[in-house]
Design a protein around this nucleic acid. Structure first.
Lengths: 259, 259
DNA sequence: CGACAACTTCTCAATAAGTGAGACGAATTT
DNA sequence: AAATTCGTCTCACTTATTGAGAAGTTGTCG
């Protein structure tokens, strides 16, 4: 089954993925050869090219390669679609400082939700995503719900069908659970962390970020310790998140209007 | 003059750069064709490949492409060499919250200093780098000084020779200025923002992050409003940064030791 | 709702580009 | 100083990529 596009491209990307998989110690030539089936000279040729473009670099260990800083530059831009990330950053920070919980910005990426930005508060929490760039299948987590709720019903169904097996086996979430939470969001304007999930000691909230025509640009989400979830605190957090989402859209709109 | 490595690779990277250059509105097929000289089908083939790998995506506007979220994932890793970024993140946050100024993590990237992480405080400041991924030539800014000071003298000289013309013309910094600041750092253990720079209303400090054998892993840097720079505040900030740098190395070391 | 205009993919022969085997040079380590 | 690991080079080969143009899609506007 041929990959779309030139194979050199696909191979180069494989090399990047392999490098990423090897983490901070870097990948060696054998990792690349085993991982791709390329001959040594070819692997080196590609490595050389990637290095010269700044996509790979030589780490502290000889013969091992690390991801290059050009990826950092591009990655920073990639996460800033519509300028959403820049808008969210200071607001997430202020939420985290003021309320102590951890706050996230999510966007949709095909059948996944991708985390564009995190700001942890002073109370440590866990989450399905480890950090910026983390992805979960749509349906997992409160942010996913907020992202899915405003898609076309047909599209939503397609996505759920495509991933419900994985949702069930990896996260013990049924399609019906997801539908129920979406209904909850439509009724109350926010999404809760799903009960019985794999992170029992945390709760969560999420609100969608909708543009003026009702399309979802992203979602703000937070995760908080169950022990801190009094009614008042929840209400406070929710209010603050709604305000933040509203302000972001307003500011985005005025920015677009200016140019 | 031929680029090293397969040309397909180079072209693909060009497409990414072009996409990045077009910002959040995305790049269209004409941008790509004009920018690379490729024929239309070829450009589309590459685009398809890049999209299928998650390096590009279709934005809100038809016929325009944006950087894909896979870059976000790789970028997040790329900035985390030796796990430095993960170590720095919470510390930068706490510094920013506690002291109100803006703090940065830098690493060396060839002849540049690259910003791996930013945490802004409540007092707004400007900086040479706009955000994560930003680069300045080594020599510009206090973080650069901290990074250069612990290189081999020969290497330092090579770098300075290579970039002194640009330093002079773009930033009005002479090689001697840089040497002086490096001497200052060796004497006092920290680097100051260079006087007479292009950002007169801000001051800065930077401390190196050195591993146990004295090699520079990176630098912590801060930028603060001149109006806030009393002697006591400077001393407080400097102390806090030194502590943070020391703690990071200690924690990194214990992490490495564990595996 | 139907025609238009855009973006995108396909076909096919020509050719330029990437490929692999192995030898060679360079940089470290023991 | 010898040995090992890492990176590059040469060269014949052949396969994957290319470009021109046409056909197909998809969204838009009258």
């Amino acid at each position: 089954m041929p990959q779309p596009g030139p194979s050199t491209l696909h191979r180069a990307m494989q090399l990047l993925q392999i490098t990423a998989a090897c983490g901070y110690r870097g990948a060696g030539i054998d990792d690349y050869m085993d991982g791709t089936g390329l001959s040594r000279p070819t692997a080196y040729r590609l490595l050389k090219g990637l290095r010269s473009q700044g996509f790979l670099r030589n780490g502290p260990i000889r013969g091992r390669y690390l991801l290059g800083y050009e990826l950092l530059v591009l990655g920073a831009q990639a996460g800033n679609g519509s300028g959403l990330r820049d808008l969210a950053r200071p607001r997430l920070l202020s939420l985290a400082q003021r309320l102590g919980d951890s706050f996230y910005l999510f966007a949709r990426d095909g059948i996944h939700a991708v985390c564009l930005e995190v700001q942890n508060g002073e109370y440590p929490v866990g989450s399905f995503v480890r950090a910026t760039g983390g992805r979960v299948p749509l349906g997992v987590g409160q942010a996913s719900i907020a992202l899915m709720a405003y898609l076309e019903p047909a599209e939503r169904r397609t996505i759920l069908q495509h991933s419900q097996a994985q949702l069930k086996s990896d996260y013990r979430i049924s399609a019906q659970d997801v539908e129920d939470e979406i209904a909850f969001l439509h009724q109350h304007g926010y999404a809760r962390g799903v009960e019985g999930s794999q992170l029992p000691e945390y709760g969560g909230l999420a609100v969608p970020i909708l543009d003026h025509s009702g399309h979802p640009l992203g979602a703000l989400s937070c995760s908080l310790l169950k022990s801190r979830t009094t009614e008042e605190h929840l209400a406070e957090v929710l209010d603050a998140m709604r305000d933040a989402a509203r302000d972001m859209v307003k500011e985005a709109h005025s920015l677009l209007y200016l140019e």
